[in-house]
Write a protein that binds this DNA or RNA. Structure first.
Lengths: 126, 126
DNA sequence: GCGGAGTTGTAAAAAGTTTGTAAAAAGCGC
DNA sequence: GCGCTTTTTACAAACTTTTTACAACTCCGC
């Protein structure tokens, strides 16, 4: 009876400086040019974009885009991420972050990126 | 009788003047900048921080972070402590104390370091 | 203080794991 | 079959963790 946690969030569309996704019409544009996405590519992008800023574990992506359970071992997710990145061109890694050991995260164009190399061995504290 | 919580107390977050740890999202920030921690580094830091002010014996750390029993001889704990300290930069030894022959202890930023036999579960930070 | 046994610190190598990638194979609709 | 999409395969590259080897330090009795 417990209703599933809303798996279809009602966002009509996403848009930032370069990328736009129309979820009702199911297509995306990059710098105003329509991106030719295949079905799976779109599904993957849409899921990532609908959770912009959140880390989505591989498990979750495989389950929600492919219906795969945890027992299935495949590299198809990686391949699709790669194709998406390719089609995102120069913005590839700006938009799609890899969270090592966990999954992926879509970041809106201007979102602050927390990762920085190494904290400088700063000056001593007395 | 209030039912005693099990040994795993769920504190939502920790924060002091410089360090913050979000246990539900599993990340830490140092002076508002996100610390890039690997999983094991995070696990170790989280366990220490959740027991701030308490000495945690090596045995306990090895058991709870690595699942190792007393028979296993390894220096991986020391190496991980070292990496954590490195990432804590100037605050390294302010936060992570070595208790010779026993283990380690995380101290909140302002906690005084005195000779006390058994430091009580230190009062919350202001 | 001094020395030794045991403990911890550290850098670097080795080992283990995860992700990236190209190309081939498999699947699907026409 | 043909063209397109998706999955698998096989290996490379990137990243994380553990081990190794030795230096430095602490404790304790003398």
């Amino acid at each position: 009876m417990a209703p599933e946690p809303t798996n279809t969030i009602q966002i009509p569309a996403y848009g930032d400086e370069h990328l736009a996704v129309d979820f009702s019409q199911q297509y995306a544009t990059l710098d105003s040019v329509r991106m030719p996405l295949t079905r799976k590519e779109y599904d993957l992008l849409a899921l990532l974009v609908q959770h912009a800023g959140e880390i989505i574990p591989r498990d979750a992506l495989l389950l929600r885009v492919w219906g795969y359970g945890a027992e299935i071992r495949t590299r198809t997710l990686d391949v699709h991420v790669r194709r998406l990145r390719k089609k995102l061109g120069a913005y590839a890694d700006v938009y799609i972050e890899t969270i090592f050991g966990i999954g992926y995260r879509f970041q809106p164009f201007h979102a602050p990126r927390f990762f920085q190399s190494e904290p400088k061995p700063a000056a001593a504290v007395a």
